[in-house]
Design a binder for these strands. Structure first.
Lengths: 171, 171
DNA sequence: CGACATTACTTCGCTGGCGAAGTATTCGTC
DNA sequence: GACGAATACTTCGCCAGCGAAGTAATGTCG
């Protein structure tokens, strides 16, 4: 008897209760598993950042600062867009990060409307620590797949992301 | 030249900037793509529920009520656990849903501490409408894969979810 | 050059959600 | 069967984030 995961049980339940609603098992399974994996990953980040004494949204902001083309520096607007938060929300985040000494806000020399956010030494340090913990947990997860499977999964996921990222026609 | 997605560019950027940090490209790619797909799916739900005039967390609560073994009825605690919100948060959500007439709170006959949440006719109706819109968009996404690829992806994802759901040893 | 639109942030009022404390009920056990 | 622990919610005070309005600087174009 093959092992079942939460999603298998979910789909079976659905099948028996909602026979009248149009519903593709395989689609629902893929979508549900992606959601559940993301929930798990969110949990790993949560424990990783808690360990170094930082909050998840603070880590996310530092992370976004570090993974860009100009590592460690960006405008509040860029960060807000990357992280999917509003401008107002980013102002609040930066207030907190600045008070904690993890970033610094400087006026832009070219454009006096602009602000340049820069990560500090201690900000980069705490980010690295959280990164390491988080990375280790992610590797543990993906380690259940062989190299071949990992590449296969990556390829299939990329087919989906390419579609989501493609500019959509406006009807 | 093969097409690149956001994740490819992210990994390449990482490679060039952070050569000193331990980092597995394939792991990062898988994890990042899952996150980005989830973000996309969250967006599709957002537009679907907006169309029927309901908020995402309201939809999620109704959904959780409907997909369980006893469709349409549950305790606040069950719902809170399923949805990953606190008890206090669930009280707030139910207050809103009840005021909108989509659920009803009744005292449990067996245990006077308990509350039985039940979906109303209009609650079930609005849930179905949102479901249909959401389902259509998800099918559109997964349709970029062939049947064979879809099954393959589902199988690989299941390998991961099984691991995440397995009871972990306490060290 | 000057008026109007646009851009880049910040402030403000409000809302969803959290953890802790509170209330009521039921369970366990001596 | 009485008393302390556990369970099931709700209330309370607080915080992150949102949209809208506000402020200041820069573009645009007649």
């Amino acid at each position: 008897m093959p092992e079942t995961d939460w999603t298998d049980r979910h789909v079976a339940r659905w099948r028996s209760h909602w026979v009248d609603i149009h519903f593709d098992d395989e689609v629902e399974a893929v979508v549900t598993r992606i959601s559940r994996l993301q929930r798990f990953l969110k949990g790993t980040i949560q424990t990783a950042v808690a360990e170094v004494g930082i909050q998840d949204f603070e880590y996310a902001t530092l992370h976004s600062l570090m993974i860009r083309d100009t590592p460690g520096t960006a405008s509040p607007t860029d960060l807000a867009e990357d992280l999917g938060v509003s401008g107002a929300g980013m102002t609040g985040r930066l207030d907190g990060l600045e008070k904690a000494g993890w970033v610094q806000r400087n006026p832009s020399p070219d454009d006096r409307r602009r602000v340049v956010v820069e990560i500090t030494r201690s900000g980069a340090e705490i980010w690295r620590k959280a990164m390491a913990l988080r990375g280790a947990q992610e590797e543990e997860l993906v380690a259940v797949l062989s190299d071949r499977e990992r590449a296969q999964l990556s390829r299939l996921l990329k087919k989906l992301t390419l579609w989501t990222e493609a500019p959509r026609e406006v009807q």
